[in-house]
Design a protein around this nucleic acid. Structure first.
Lengths: 156, 156
DNA sequence: TTGCTCCTCACGTCACGTGAGGTGGC
DNA sequence: TTGCTCCTCACGTCACGTGAGGTGGC
């Protein structure tokens, strides 16, 4: 459970995922926000934010039952969405969130270089799949629609 | 329910999705195959094929309960997987499968040009997302891991 | 009889969507 | 009182995964 490392040089096998600015995605620097406001802010649904919370990714304030999202909660949301974009599951993200606790600078997700590499590989494969699909759909769209039309006179 | 069209020139707003060869993906020209054999052939699980069948996408032969996949069934599987790669849902694919009934050449999926265009747009958006994610992960991987390391001396 | 493949339920998973029914403040 | 947002169940969706329990032919 203890992680003994050099006190000066941090673990080089660990990458800390951060957002450039705590709230890079918006100019909104309000102290507190409701679910629907925060959801709106990040282009997700209130349901999604409640769901992330139920999975332990988020812990907003409460005021008589109602959720209130502080700046740090919103920074956390930004990190979650970034990790999701990277293709990580909510379970993986939860672990990355938990692992940020010991980190002094606060808002950042712990990610091993190994896992980073693996994720790049995974996304690269996805990329190829999508590129192939687009190419084929374009070819089909360009071609005459009917399969018995003479295709030989057309370039793919 | 009736589709009245020019009898000579087929509907130009319809694209027929086909596989280049009935069984392009394999050199296996056996008459009949079991679930696990067919699944193996296409790199999917037997469960997936049974699931597609339960959704009305597939109708293999039966021999005393056991499923037997003819060449046309396997050609159908190839079409389904192609459509899946294009990003269509099984529900959409089912409709495309149903719409192939009136088509004389048999194995092909009906797809409107409009929907084809929309799908290309959708995949293009996906592509950008994935490309951005890869770029950012690569940047992070290249950079020194710690957020308090001096990044200014490194190019992204 | 053992081993292998096949089968049909049927519940689990992942990331939410979608009502249902109820509360709180202007 | 009406209207709006908030809340908590809890079931639905999509594309399968994963046993559970049973059958059939070599």
């Amino acid at each position: 459970m203890q992680s003994e490392q050099s006190s000066f040089f941090p673990d080089t096998d660990i990458i800390w995922v951060t957002t450039d600015s705590p709230l890079e995605t918006s100019s909104n620097d309000r102290e507190l926000m409701t679910v629907s406001e925060a959801a709106e802010e990040f282009g997700v649904t209130p349901r999604a934010l409640r769901f992330y919370e139920s999975k332990g990714l988020l812990t907003p304030m409460r005021e008589g039952g109602a959720r209130l999202y502080r700046r740090r909660d919103r920074a956390q949301i930004a990190l979650i969405l970034k990790a999701k974009k990277f293709g990580f599951s909510l379970l993986e993200i939860r672990d990355m969130v938990k692992a940020q606790d010991g980190y002094p600078a606060g808002q950042s997700l712990r990610l091993s270089r190994e896992k980073c590499r693996a994720q790049i590989k995974l996304l690269e494969r996805q990329l190829e799949e999508v590129q192939e699909a687009i190419a084929e759909l374009r070819r089909m769209h360009t071609m005459l629609s009917a399969p018995f039309a003479d295709r030989s006179s057309l370039q793919g």
